[in-house]
Amino acid sequence: MLKIENLKATIEEKQILKGINLEVKQGEVHAIMGPNGSGKSTLASVLAGREDYVINGGSITFQGNDLTELNPEERARAGIFLAFQYPIEIPGVSTTNFLKTAVNQVRKSKGLKPLDAVSFLKIMKEKMKLVDIDQALLSRSLNEGFSGGEKKRNEIFQMAMLEPTLAILDETDSGLDIDALKIVADGVNKLKTSENATIVVTHYQRLLDYIVPDFVHVLYNGRIVKTGDKSLALELEAKGYDWIKEEVGELA
């Protein structure tokens, strides 16, 4: 589904990604872990098409197509979803209103008819249950004055509405207490099928207790330096990142 080869990217002329290789297949859950500043969020942003980053090497292929040729909205319509680490507050735009526009633009790109208000609301009600989100919250300005947990639940709710092929969760656990974390993880798990895939970007192991990965990759200094199964996450939790740094240092 997704194939990243030797991907290099800069922001403001600073080289952040220094050659990433990663392949994600249908039905898989990949966790990307790593210390602060290793390039995890950059990778997530580059996949979503953030224009502040300049790709200066390598390739990203999504379902056989060159992803770098697509702008952010085209990527979203192709089935890529980024759950933001820091969801943006947009005053005056309600979640409901904006999601209706989004869902219908995605549908339009697939040649589907726009949803009328009734069917949209019906789908919305179903998906709201997934993340236990309140309708009143969705009528309010997008993320404005939302608590950390409400913002993250809203991200997963949007994901449920857009039904992406590849979901990228950028530090979705940050700012969540354990109850909110369970709700969010539960939502993600319910959305998982054999057709789609998930990339979970996280600093800590605890989210992976709830969203169990098939692969764990350690990103350090712009490269994936280690790949393993879920036991690697536990090892990182127990030992921290220093041993990875040392190992890489020894290799270098």
Binding site: E73, L82, F84, I90, G92, V93, T101, A102, V103, Q105
Partner: peptide, 29 residues
Amino acid sequence: DEDAIFYLRARGISKEDAITLMLNAFTKD
């Protein structure tokens, strides 16, 4: 706000519509 425009585009909304949505909200009150 460029971040807000990116957020809306990342949900599949075209750049033009994202701008319209935001400016509509900006003037509405």
